[in-house]
Write a protein that binds this DNA or RNA. Sequence first.
DNA 1: GTTTATTATATGTTTTAATCATATAGATGT
DNA 2: ACATCTATATGATTAAAACATATAATAAAC
Lengths: 133, 133
Amino acid sequence: MCHSHDPSHPGSSCCSPPSGRMQGFIQPWLLLLLSEKPAHGYQLTEKLNQNEDTKGIDPGFLYRTLRQFEEDGLVKSSWDTKGAGPARRVYEMTADGVEYLHAWVKHIRTTRKQLGRFLEAYSSRFKPSDKKE
Amino acid sequence: MCHSHDPSHPGSSCCSPPSGRMQGFIQPWLLLLLSEKPAHGYQLTEKLNQNEDTKGIDPGFLYRTLRQFEEDGLVKSSWDTKGAGPARRVYEMTADGVEYLHAWVKHIRTTRKQLGRFLEAYSSRFKPSDKKE
DNA sequence: GTTTATTATATGTTTTAATCATATAGATGT
DNA sequence: ACATCTATATGATTAAAACATATAATAAAC
């Protein structure tokens, strides 16, 4: 499908660095937001859209992720029929959910360190001014 | 398939943080290694296995990635029939390949910053000792 | 000298994560 | 009554990676 390799668009070919955000990046944000207070999907969308790093989320992905969280016991939901507009499914975090957020943070720290180590290796290859020991 | 959510294995359930390494992490390492000197797949496997962050790569993934790199003009290959053992396909980096490595590095820096921002948000939620401005 | 292990590359299949597209429906404004 | 906004949901597709296996030349062991 690719085979074109247009150097004038060095961020859009099939073999270029992934253009979007990294895999598994939205989920911890959702858990973090829910850890602050219960919310429904639409609210969460709006909050994510206010953050440059998480904006533009696909609603299908959001709602499916939330249902999956519930299936796995990370959140529990209930319908809120009061107030204006259609009913909202409100998600509230469980203790397991908080635990999982912490586990996710460990993973993120690990990943961040890995990226740092790659950047170090890259720097000592391309800016060998500071020699590595 | 999941539906079990075994809290005694908080890193192995379906809804836990991704266990492996992040998507698109091997490719820049390959390009970085090839930017140092030409190499064939088996050599690259061995080098990747010496690095804790990149070890255990699937050979199928490796060889397909290298062919894809070539298809996209990031590397070029030739057969090395001299020396012991079966013939080796030796990959050598192109100027485009170096360019792409740099582009990848930009993406990695962006991702790393995003992870940092998430960790900051997490910290101000769970360790509110240092108040954010 | 035949079998076994090592080096080396390659491809078919499956799984998983995410995206794209679309469907449904209540509430509110005109 | 019709359009728009709020809100949730599901079917289909794509793309990355993992899993499984195939092939073959050389080298070592017996």
